[in-house]
Amino acid sequence: MFSESRTTHPGGKSSVKTYREALNEALRQEMRRDPTVIVLGEEVSGGAGCPGERDAYGGVFGVTKGLLPEFGAERVLDTPISESAIVGAAAGAANNGLRPVAELMFFDFIGVCFDQIFNQAAKFRYMFGGKSRTPMVLRATVGAGFRAGAQHSNMLHPIVTHIPGLKVVLPATPYDAKGLLIQAIRDEDPVIFLEHKLLYDLKGEVPDEPYAIPFGEAAFHREGDDVTIVAISAMLHKALAAADELAKEGISCDLIDPRTTSPLDEEAILESVEVTGRLVVVDEGNPRCGLAADIAALVAERAFHALRAPVRTVTAPHTPVPFAPELEDAYIPSVEKIVAAVREVLEA
């Protein structure tokens, strides 16, 4: 599933790291640099109050492992299972001198704490006439493919992308994971940072030094003239496989990962469509009012004159994420579906 990305790296020493290790390194380096950065969430270390070991989990997927031993329980807080209290504490603390990185385990859990995200943290600055700062990060895992069923597998990035006041980040590579998380921690606005659970073991070259990737700057993973493909999060890797397969037939794709859905690098998409005249948007989210529809609308509004074929979207269907492996595999957009969509826009 996973192909090598072509993102260029800054200078300095680098090494091969997993997406998980890249995220851990970003947290560790930022916590060393800035004593106001704290981490809180359910089992971000694990074992609190238990007779056995501390740091038993280091987060549900091990991203925060080792932070408790290095930074102590004052900066790495294992919380009760109380998502509203977690998000509220992060938002309130961010307005009072800390830079909290809160973890929601699974982004599906926004259902029990959405008020604190969208009515509180997201709106503070506007409601308070620009006086408040809420430099918090809310990390969470998204995505299907883990056989985790309907309540642990959603994407839901469109729901938060819809909310003014939030920034929304979905890294697809280890390099982006580190650089975008560092930017998220240093950012002055509330950032929703969504990690795809199938990507944690993905390896890639990652600089050892800290670096920040600005939000709203898309990454170009393949360059081509025939079709523009926009894909985000884990879908980038499906799109890479599709583009490489099509390249064998001489079809060249411009493959864009926006990396952040808010802000969205609209210019990168529009400029590419101006050249190719054809657009396929791939997104693991559900189709209605989703990212793919949003990008299709953007292009219809601002680059209609350049289009030589109808825009095609490849998304999950309008269903919850199913459990049975056959059903879940059919739910997630596949390389075959992307290839078919590209052929269709070329034939139109």
Partner: peptide
């Protein structure tokens, strides 16, 4: 830190202010 039009919206946020005070020992 704000009036709040959501009933029960404030106490989790005040916890955050208290957490900052405790962590930063202000």
């Amino acid at each position: 830190l704000g009036a709040n039009a959501i009933v029960g919206g404030g106490p989790p946020l005040a916890n955050g202010a208290a957490l900052a005070a405790k962590t930063l020992k202000t």
